[in-house]
């Protein structure tokens, strides 16, 4: 599902990471500053590695030898950022509809399904600043799911939440990961519950892959 082999300067050291995972859910784990988020950004196309190759689901997104770099908005990689990054000028419903709106799609059964899965029905008409941290993260996940993802990249979605908010969102994440129909890359710096659900765990330290575990 994920095939990554990239080199890029990263702070004081170099990112030089290669891994391959055929699992539906892959966890990327390691301490802060180890290069996890840079790998996610490279897969999404937000940063361009110096050398290497990235393929997801059999589609090559980046290949320095072939001078290929698919523009970020055409990759279909949907990132859920740590700090949710909802659009403050839209309501929750408008945020959820953003991807479908760009694709010219209307509200449909899938919309209702995702809203139900994440339990965000009561929030639809609210503005992001009126939401709690956990609610925001659920909406951000919904927004990514509704934008026809080729893959879902969850970049430490729990990191900015306190313990109570984490408890609130974990059941939803578990449900999501267990029923994943698209490749999911889950990034965490702690050995947390969601990570344990992944079929493959890639450990990163100092910009390098130190271990690949398969469950």
């Amino acid at each position: 599902m994920f095939e990554v082999s990239i080199q890029a300067p990263l702070g004081e050291f170099n990112l030089d990471a290669s891994f391959r995972s055929e699992s539906m859910v892959t966890a990327l784990s390691g301490p802060s500053g180890s290069g996890k988020s840079s790998i996610v950004a490279a897969i999404g196309g937000l940063v361009k590695p110096k050398r290497g190759k990235i393929a997801v689901n059999g589609h090559t997104l980046f290949d320095s030898d072939a001078r290929l770099a698919v523009p970020p908005h055409k990759r279909g990689m949907r990132i859920v950022f740590q700090e949710s990054r909802l659009f403050p000028h839209f309501t929750v419903a408008q945020n959820l509809m953003f991807g479908r709106w760009l694709a010219g799609k209307k509200r449909d059964a899938q919309f209702d399904e995702v809203v139900a899965l994440l339990g965000i029905e009561p929030l639809l008409s609210r503005r992001p600043r009126k939401l709690s941290g956990g609610e925001r993260q659920r909406v951000a996940i919904g927004r990514a799911l509704l934008a026809d993802p080729q893959a879902l990249l969850l970049d430490e979605p729990l990191a900015s939440l306190d313990a109570a908010r984490k408890e609130e969102i974990i059941p939803y994440l578990t449900r999501l990961v267990l029923s994943a129909k698209i490749p999911v890359l889950y990034v965490s710096h702690a050995n947390d519950e969601i990570e344990r659900l992944a079929q493959t765990v890639v450990k990163i330290d100092g910009g390098r892959v130190t271990e690949i575990k398969k469950h």
Binding site: G45, L46, R78, R85, F87, A144, A147, D148
Partner: peptide, 10 residues
């Protein structure tokens, strides 16, 4: 941050 999010949504 919002611009990046928009690009990542297509």
């Amino acid at each position: 941050t919002a611009l990046e999010a928009a690009r990542m949504l297509g």
